[in-house]
Amino acid sequence: MKQPTIAEIDRKEDRKARRRSKRFPFMLMSPFFVLTGLFVIVPILIMFVMSFTDMGLTLEWNFIGFKTYARLFADPALKTIILRTFIFVILGTICSVLSSIFITVITTFYLDTIYRKENAGIIFRIIWLLPSLTPSVVYAFIWNYVFGPTDYHLMNIVRSWFGLEPITWFALYPQQILFLAVVITSASSSIILFSAAVRQIPLHIIQAARVDGASPLYICRKIVLPYLRWPITQKTLWSVLIYFCTYEIIFLLTKGGPAGKTTTFAYYVYQNAFNLKKFGMGAALAVVLVAMSALLGLLVLRVFKVNEQLQDPRMDI
């Protein structure tokens, strides 16, 4: 039998190596593909197909074409809900982003960097991180009790100090309470990112500006905020998406009520599917929701320039 030459062995090895390196990424990603395929892509397809049925409690796949969509768009309530959702999303994003900038600048810039009171900075940061760390049921429970209807609840105790009768806060101000609760968690969740961005500012830049006699406010405007520009853009876009998709806290706090006053589009989807058991309608609404958030997602893609964030591997193995 003929011994293979080194060149032949090398060629064989190379073929093997190329096959291996072609398979390698897919081998790493295959568990992800399986899980995402089964538990994300398949549900999406099911939802899509279901949106052409009028499935209700009986769980029958009764296809009625676009009739569900026709019914959906004819619903006068939908316009109000969409309008309310947009106001909720826009106002909420503005308020939460502004307040997290405010908190970050004071804790991480003023207290940590300028006044060297790191302990105060840490305490405030932890306080402001609490809401995003708190499990949603507890968070809802807290607000339920602060604004509860009886004279044992916090806000009514406060009223009693002024000799006022207890009131049913959730009936009178449902939108305001919900808004407050959502803005606080959302602001809370941006603080880590913003703090990390402020920390990345080279200290010598700030020191140099201080030596040149710049006031902290001036440094904040001319150095800190420009550094935060990218995280702010990023967080604003994500906030929009998150507000748009919020439903859990609404479910826990107000259930969309009273009289549908706190029903946003995402919650409307949930309500139709799970409270009213109108699965066909719920699915059709979900498709509309997905279409709207996909538009937002495309905007995110444009802003984040995904391709530039993919570096080519720096080797040919």
Binding site: L28, F274, A286, V290, L301, F304, P313
Partner: peptide, 28 residues
Amino acid sequence: TKFPGRPLLTKLMIILDAFPTVALLIGF
């Protein structure tokens, strides 16, 4: 690593990340 469809997959991930979870519940 580089593989065919890498930019597409990355974009899909971002779209999926922005996906409203409430829309998945029925399918689950």
